[in-house]
Amino acid sequence: MITYPNVHLAHFIDRPNRFIAECRLQKTGEMVTVHVKNTGRCKELFYPEVEVALTYQPSPKRKTDYDLIAVKKGTDWFNIDSQVPNALAAKAIKDGIITLPDLNGKIVSVKREKRFAHSKFDILVETDTGKQAFVEVKGMTLENHSLGAFPDAPTLRGLKHVTELIEAMKEGYQSYVLFVVQFEKIELATIHTDMQPALAQMILSGQKQGLSVIAYNCSVTPDTIAIEHQVPFDVTKMFEDPNSER
């Protein structure tokens, strides 16, 4: 579990650009400019007056004193911190909460940010059989009718990562894509094919060659996020974008 310090509830007002938002603190009514810890669109989450969670992190080196970390959608909290999935995944793999299917051997080390070709993969796992496996972690915040999808905007970086994970397998590595679903109520995870057809095609091609794609959901409160359990992933499941009319 990751716990955020100094969390304040607020209401979202506006998002002038992808880096900042204007919010109103619930306790005082003060208007504050906050850093949004996710550069994705998140249009289905950010409605005027929606409840949000801010962590107060003042520093002379910062332009804003608050970070926006979570949004309430209906009765459920969605964590949108794009930096948290990697930390959650690394610890959960070490602790055995996340299991890597068909991994050759028992895990003896979990290392962060290891280079291969033109990519820097999030995690390198080493086993007692001498096998190495790359794990590329992607946060998932897009949801519609309990179906989660990635991405919410085209990602050339994500496509490159999947392509090079496939190349790594040809050199003897095992390769995994791990989606950390940053909300709890989900029945199935998929790729948002209409948003990025090439990514869906590459995922499907990779799976046929031995690429493992797995997803785990999270329990989320305004100030915490924790890995819960594995959820099914099906790249062929079509996703209806809730933002298509916005």
Rank of each mutant, 00 (worst) to 15 (best):
P5K: 02
N6V: 04
D14F: 13
R15E: 06
E22C: 13
Q26W: 15
K27W: 14
K27P: 13
M31P: 15
G40W: 12
L45E: 05
T55I: 10
Q57Y: 14
Q57K: 12
K61G: 13
A70Y: 04
V71P: 09
G74K: 06
Q83V: 05
P85I: 03
A87P: 14
L88M: 06
L88R: 02
A89G: 02
A90C: 09
G96P: 11
I97E: 02
L100N: 01
D102K: 05
D102L: 12
L103D: 05
G105S: 05
K106W: 08
K106C: 07
K106Y: 10
K106P: 11
V108Q: 06
E113A: 02
A117T: 11
F121P: 00
I123L: 01
L124K: 06
D128L: 00
D128V: 07
T129Y: 06
K131I: 07
G139E: 11
M140Y: 11
T141D: 11
A149Q: 08
P151A: 04
D152F: 12
P154C: 07
L156V: 10
R157H: 15
K160R: 15
E164N: 00
E167L: 01
M169L: 01
E171A: 10
Q174K: 02
Q182S: 06
L188W: 14
I191Y: 03
M195F: 10
M195N: 01
S205V: 08
S205N: 15
S205G: 13
S205R: 14
G206C: 04
G210Q: 01
S212D: 10
E228Q: 14
P232S: 13
T236M: 08
F239D: 07
F239C: 08
S244Y: 15
R246Q: 13
